[in-house]
Design a protein around this nucleic acid. Structure first.
Lengths: 186, 186
DNA sequence: ATTAGTAATTAACAAATGTTAATGCGGAGA
DNA sequence: TCTCCGCATTAACATTTGTTAATTACTAAT
């Protein structure tokens, strides 16, 4: 789910493969709070954010677990759901009014069939994403909510500036009440 | 890190590709508490467990986070460390006296170069492992330590039977003291 | 400007875990 | 058999978060 990776971000992907995609790439607009993928569905789209922001989360009956926020130039997907045609563990929704490029599953797979280089890039992409994902989860396990909040303030100004607090609380794994306490602690 | 996957387990892998590996596959013996991979090192080996058990964990200065236990017939690797030649986030150590098959990095990559089918199997393997990994982490986040312990008792008798309690506590994300309390609650 | 609805803060209490320390248990080896 | 040492249990206390509820702040729409 983590789209930030060194090898191939959204902009680099479009630059490298965009010319092969004239018929499979669509520009779309999603007003704030539009759901792009429902948890449990099979994903048919890979997205690139031109403008705006997305949230990816898992729902567990009574509560949401927000895993990731996405901003401009990032590539966003539940790739394993696209590739294996399995139910997505996550929902994806716009936070702000968002402009996207959408790459269709069929065209992605066709493109992969025709390009060994893309297959190689995709395997790298998955490995990188896997590693990022592991870092995220390890920090979620080993660092306290307060530490992770201060880390966010220091290193992710976009999240602090553009994401409502109760989603940040969900991302930190705590309630909005607890986040408020942490912010105002001595 | 999760080696249990439907598409290709250790036994199936050896059956399918073992004949191509006469010179790259070594049998090894690891007495209890032998470290096979140190966190921070680049992994050079993919393992298959013939007999015994392994533990995979991440160390965070003062405490260990145990992520996975492995038993007979499982394929064990920090694949992204092998494939991308990056520092492993994890250490791997034997719990019991363990007999392993070890597949060398060079031979694995050579084999992948010569077999498109293996490349395909490996991408599937990674996607599957990614999904399993996500399930593990989500359960770690959304379920209480008590729920996860009772789940372990119901579904993972091998872990309960063969793994010392303080490693189980580390796997559940709590202290040995807290696990003891959970076990003896009401 | 008013109002209504959502988000954020604050307070009070309950529940769970961490920490430290003392005790009990059990196997390995002399 | 005795001793030692690591593992497991139990207890007491501190810390943190969850929960519920009341209050305040903010935003958007009329």
């Amino acid at each position: 789910m983590v789209a930030e990776q060194k090898i191939l971000d959204g902009a680099a992907f479009l630059k490298k493969y965009g010319s092969m995609l004239t018929d499979g790439l669509y520009m779309e607009q999603a007003p704030a709070l539009t759901t792009l993928l429902y948890q449990g569905d099979i994903s048919h789209s890979l997205y690139f954010i031109k403008q705006g922001s997305l949230r990816l989360w898992h729902n567990n009956g009574d509560k949401d677990i927000t895993m990731q926020f996405f901003f401009e130039n990032q590539m966003v997907s539940a790739f394993e759901s696209i590739y294996l045609a399995t139910a997505s563990l996550y929902s994806i929704e716009s936070l702000e009014n968002t402009i996207l490029y959408r790459l269709d599953r069929d065209n992605l797979l066709k493109l992969m069939d025709n390009s060994e280089e893309l297959q190689h890039d995709i395997l790298n992409f998955i490995c990188e994403r896997f590693i990022n994902y592991q870092h995220y989860f390890l920090s979620r396990i080993k660092d306290s909510p307060a530490e992770r909040y201060h880390d966010l303030v220091a290193n992710e100004p976009r999240i602090i500036a553009r994401v409502p607090q109760h989603y940040i609380a969900s991302y930190l794994g705590i309630t909005a009440v607890s986040l408020s306490r942490i912010k105002n602690r001595h």
